[in-house]
Design a protein around this nucleic acid. Structure first.
Lengths: 241, 241
DNA sequence: GGGACGCTTCGGCGTCCGCCGAAGTGTCGT
DNA sequence: ACGACACTTCGGCGGACGCCGAAGCGTCCC
């Protein structure tokens, strides 16, 4: 009332993200993994009590969920829509103000390949997306709509294409990569591709966040898309810009 | 350092949205209009000094920009990417917790037609998007890729299709409507369509936020897409679900 | 130019928030 | 059954934030 239609309220989500410790926690969870409270506390640089409160705030805001398992309590992002929204938010902050100087090994690895919640990101993610567009598997440089050839090709790789197209969430979505500033494949199909890469052992999680392209994964990528793995663990592009 | 790759930081944006007054201001600006500080102060329910500080915070976070014009100072969202991110954020909060009982006239109008930053939203927005998909002008129910027929058809309506495809931002984007829970057309093409509707006088801004479909607009919509205007100012769907 | 108006800056007050140490609850190991 | 461990809750402290009244600055109107 009062002349206000009572529309969207950003207060809860905003407050949840306003504390540096909570922002760090959410940033860690954006790779889609579930992590115990203690690890999140260490990563955020706060004590256990503070971390517990922070996590309670994040849960109340609907951003993360907690599941007790044994004497640990694992926290993860609440869902794909949360990951989408956070990714869109992160794309605002500009092309990574720090970086450039003294990039750590871990940062290199993240830039090369990582999970963005449930789909592949980093150079690997944008590379695959662009290769799919080049081969006609996905249509529209920005939009990444699945073509019939794409459905056939991905099905041949063991990707659960039919499950992805039947899912409630959008089949494909373009997700702006914050290291590459180019889009990669998200949505249900992106998740299916990511799951296939993990199940088949084509990528493996490194000790930190970030992914390593295994030898079998390199072979698959090379044969299917014509992409050559680079010495630094990333991948180079033959003809593309 | 310290094992942290120093990635995305949500702190600034989160803090900017954490205050109810700032959230209300941003919510008002999401229709793409520029409004003077005093109006935003009144809408947020705070005094002029507080509003001024709040707006300074929003500007510092990169969410809004302020332009002095005469003795007024007009504030608006900083850009389409900001609107996109906020729309994604708003989609989290669930299907409008309040609503249902005692919906104000203004709320009805907003649900019928409104601007979502620079493109059409509400029942009008999702209706047009779905009609375009049904006619083959846009491809993929979720993705809304522009087809050749769509480019031709929209060009015939006076929409600046070529300007939209040449723009830096994605040509088409699917934007989840928070009243309808279905997607409507965003991106450069969505903005071009919205601009055309406004320029041609097919829609007009009402006293509040929200849009009114003019008689000429009703005619265009009916002839082009076969959509009938509803008595409540919305539009009804002949054959579609 | 005088005065009203819109907005911003300054000074201060009250409150909320983030943090930790200590204590409490439930789980795992032996 | 006992201790170690992971996590949460409770009290209390310090700092930051939101708010307003008063004052300063630039613009429009008569």
């Amino acid at each position: 009332m009062g002349g206000d239609g009572r529309d969207r309220d950003f207060t809860d989500v905003g407050r949840a993200l306003s504390a540096p410790a909570r922002s760090a926690m959410v940033g860690l969870l954006m790779d889609g993994t579930a992590r115990p409270a203690g690890e999140l506390a260490r990563a955020a640089g706060v004590g256990a009590p503070a971390a517990s409160e922070h996590l309670a705030v994040l849960v109340a805001a609907g951003l993360v969920t907690g599941r007790a398992r044994g004497r640990h309590r694992y926290y993860a992002l609440a869902g794909p829509d949360v990951a989408d929204a956070l990714e869109a938010l992160g794309a605002l902050a500009g092309p990574v103000p720090v970086a450039g100087l003294r990039r750590s090994r871990e940062a290199d690895r993240l830039a090369a390949a990582r999970f963005c919640y449930d789909h592949l990101a980093g150079r690997l993610g944008v590379g695959l997306a662009e290769a799919c567009v080049a081969r006609g598997w996905l249509d529209g440089a920005d939009v990444l709509a699945l073509t019939d050839e794409g459905a056939h090709g991905l099905r041949g790789l063991g990707v659960d294409v039919d499950g992805a197209t039947a899912a409630r969430r959008p089949t494909t979505r373009a997700c702006l990569d914050w290291t590459e500033r180019r889009v990669h494949l998200a949505g249900a199909l992106g998740a299916a591709v990511g799951a296939r890469f993990l199940d088949a052992g084509w990528v493996a999680r490194t000790s930190g966040r970030g992914l390593r392209l295994t030898p079998s994964g390199q072979a698959v990528v090379r044969e299917t898309w014509g992409v050559e793995p680079a010495p630094a663990g990333g991948i180079t592009w033959p003809g593309r810009a």
